[in-house]
Design a binder for these strands. Structure first.
Lengths: 369, 369
DNA sequence: TTGAAAGCGCTAACAC
DNA sequence: GTGTTAGCGCTTTCAA
């Protein structure tokens, strides 16, 4: 009773050839009588086809890979739940990897997936286009979620903790691109880019989300609004620059590197260096968390002293007092849709999807005073 | 340039047999000269052994499965990060499944893992011992994390949303065991159990954690202390019963079923049915979140009207105002240790691990008044 | 409609 | 120390 039945066992017990069993079980043609017989025997032997044999034969592992920077970031957890839900309903396995936002770990994990012959991958990318081009050229079907890989930058900016991130202004850190540069990314300029990667993706409508938030804050009378971003928030920062309009005060756009510590340092630095700001847009929930903590530490009241809008709606946003006003993006849906795309990729080249955001007004924004 | 090199390609290019290549690459014996030559050729061809062939040959897939109830529960996300960290450093893939706390989905996912020939599994179990016995008998090495599967109950209590959970007292729901029953689980009685499953596990020292919290609340003068639990919190509830001592007021021990809605309903029901309680111990972060929300909705101030201690330290615990006093358990470490156990399971039957908890006093508890 | 047979890439006996 | 060979369980031609 130890080892499982193989297709051969079923074939013998049913008095047919293995090919027939294989056909029946994968919905091929067979006479009603044979089919019934095979099915009965298979059930009786509790036969379950081994993925091992099939995978080797087809030279590919089923299922899909999923790469995210950090599961304790609730947004990525939501996204992962969406992917898992879709995969589960398709009966497909998911190989998960957490990159820590580090392109090197990401590359290692891609290598691992290649070794496993997993050729479908959903990724919230940390590395840039150069990192990803090989995987795609190797024949992997990659669907990016949340954002696309950044274009390769001449200034190498790699690794999550490679540069000082606590500087209050982007000007202190050569690795942090200026808002103007970021706006170029967003297609606002004709700056030539080396063969942009055209991979399908599922992202939120960052531009609309940010624009709505900025307009809302403007409507409350805020003039000095800051943006607090993290890795992968380039598009959001660009949208922010666009929304506030030129001239952009570059000291008001600050980036952390992905860790909670760095986010806190960035937020704290921002508040200290620019006490004149009256509102902050945080590019993700980890940054929002950092902003709340830093504000509290500096005795800044929300929203009396500073208004806050956070990207990502997470359960704890309501727990803060006051509850946080957020730009909600459908994390779970994004994951689900990405999984659908990658699974249906057999048919035709999947097209990208942009999902709507929603400004949910709670209590963390008040009138400028 | 399309297809990857196989072991045969390497063997031919190096002028040796495939067995030699296999040996060299897996650290077997070979002459220095041969070894060097093979390694050089392999590197030159960019050869990466395919897991497909190896898996089939060894009739087992490497890596490990990981089953958790819900990744958006930050504690499970931390645990998963620990598992992933260990797996990554071992170069092993992780197949992730989210069960939603539903034994049926859990069983399906176990079936999927069996089909993939994954024989090592880390699980935060939802089903009971009966659910798990088959998998273990089938030869899977299972390490349980956070808690063990519940013993099979004569009253079938299955599925996350199978029963009304919003009742304010456990007495309303026949599926919810009484505190006395729960204390039996904890070995406080000699009630005979059917062949208890002896699988290795990595859990927190729930009893000490809960006891410390209850003593702390007692020290603040609280007499009517409630416990708000969820699936898998049986041991915690039992420890609670033990810590408050007989006679246990059973109305003060309430369970949700795992969803945020049910947790909120349970918390709200508890507060409304027993306005005389002055402190609550929440058995997990989702329940703590629910307690804060329910208290706010009912205009109960924390900690003035009700003190709160939450199991799990999560980043947002500090964001609440007042910041939440918590029983911290090392989620990431638990995952890491569990992964170590399951990976080293080849050597000898792994022994269970109990990790310490720590009461972190913040601001959500005050003196009884 | 069905069966026999050829592998997929790898490891482990076994022979040299 | 090294090569030859026999499969692992499955799918897929190719004949019958």
């Amino acid at each position: 009773m130890d080892k499982r039945a193989t297709i051969k066992d079923v074939a013998e017990a049913a008095g047919v050839g293995v090919a027939t069993v294989s056909r029946v079980l994968s919905g091929g043609s067979a006479s009603p009588h044979t089919r019934e017989r095979v099915l009965a025997v298979a059930a009786q032997l509790d036969y379950r086809p081994s993925a091992l044999g099939r995978n080797l034969r087809q030279r590919r592992t089923g299922g899909m890979g999923l790469l995210v920077p950090d599961l304790t970031d609730t947004f990525y957890a939501q996204l992962a739940e969406g992917v898992l839900a879709c995969a589960r309903s398709a009966g497909e396995p998911v190989l998960l990897g957490s990159t820590g936002g580090d392109p090197e770990q990401e590359a290692e994990l891609i290598g691992m997936l290649l070794e496993q012959s997993v050729d479908r991958l959903i990724a919230v990318p940390s590395g840039d286009e150069e990192t990803w081009a090989p995987a795609i050229r190797a024949g992997m079907t990659v669907v990016f979620a949340d954002h696309l890989p950044a274009p390769p930058s001449p200034v190498s900016y790699s690794g999550p903790f490679s540069g000082p991130s606590s500087g209050p202004s982007s000007g202190d850190d050569p690795a942090v691109r200026s808002v103007h540069d970021l706006m170029l990314l967003d297609g606002l300029s004709a700056a030539p880019r080396s063969r942009p990667l055209d991979a399908p993706s599922v992202v939120a409508d960052d531009r609309a989300g940010i624009r709505t938030a900025v307009r809302y804050l403007r409507g409350l009378g805020h003039k000095r609004i800051a943006f607090l971003g993290g890795p992968g928030h380039d598009r959001r920062a660009a949208a922010f620059g666009e929304a506030v309009g030129a001239p952009v005060d570059e000291e008001l756009v600050v980036f952390g590197t992905g860790s909670r510590d760095s986010a806190y340092a960035a937020a704290s630095g921002l508040f200290q260096s620019r006490p004149d700001l009256s509102a902050v847009v945080a590019g993700g929930n980890v940054l929002g968390e950092a902003a709340v903590l830093a504000a509290r530490e500096l005795d800044l009241r929300v929203p009396r002293d500073v208004s806050l809008v956070m990207y990502d709606d997470v359960p704890w946003a309501e727990l803060c007092s006051p509850p946080l006003t957020v730009i909600a993006q459908p994390g779970r849906d994004m994951g689900y849709r990405a999984a659908e795309l990658v699974l249906r990729s057999g048919a035709r080249k999947p097209r990208s999807v942009v999902l709507p955001t929603e400004l949910i007004i709670r209590g963390s924004c008040g009138p400028h005073r």
